[in-house]
Amino acid sequence: MPVTTQELVQFIVADAPVGTPEDPLVRMQEDLKRAIKKPENQRHWVMALDLRKCVGCSACTIACIVENKLPPGVAYRPVLEEEIGTYPNVTRRFVPRPCMQCDNPPCVNVCPVNATYKRPDGIVAINYEDCIGCRYCLTACPYSARTFDSGRHYLDGTPGTPAAITGRPKVESYEKLPAYEYGIAWERKAGASPEGNARKCQFCTHRLNAGMLPACTTTCIGRATYFGDASDHDSLVAGLIASPNVMRLKEEMGTEPKVYYLV
């Protein structure tokens, strides 16, 4: 007989009351299933990050790198760390920073070739085949959410890789796996997109299409990352972003970010 999550929790925590709330991931998974049944322009993806729960493990950063096959120098979701106080009274603060998927994205306006755009579901996307790699969008983003793929590899500069002058460095097999961003299999080949392009977090669009939560959300051990459709009032995330202890980064820039922080 299969064991439900609830039964498992009750088994581990002897005093757990009957009706212990289900894992937020299970709830968000159900929310997501409802959302992707709606037409694209009626979904409003938002992310909520509970900073009180973030332990700064950077599992989301790693999961993101693995999911999107990010080369060195490209970061979609770093966890910013801030140290407060002086020894011995020290504490640290962690702020995971995905792309804010702004409603007024400054990066989109500055693109000289219309290679980046705001999708109907709110995600700010890049068309890798159109991007010329000028990096103007990198300078225009107030959150540094875009980085440039300069074609580096993880073993660059280590013994056994040829010097830069004699040819391209050694490429490990794990670096050749395709990334599936925007639902396209991007093979890692020298001189092929997304190398030479601006890159950014896109809430794992390819996973959403398959009914899966973004990699950072699934992997968050503290359950600090929430994701869902804000226009669905029954969704977990819609409730969270309506709470009074919510804030957004650089609100004064007028970018209308779609990532909320619970503090």
């Binding site: 120098g73 990096r135 980085t147 440039f148 300069s150 074609g151 580096r152 830069a164 002058i165 030479g196």
Partner: peptide, 13 residues
């Protein structure tokens, strides 16, 4: 080598 030897760093593009 393309942009390999330019090494701007992630945040100084």
């Amino acid at each position: 080598n393309g942009h390999l030897n330019v090494s701007y760093g992630s945040y100084i593009p």
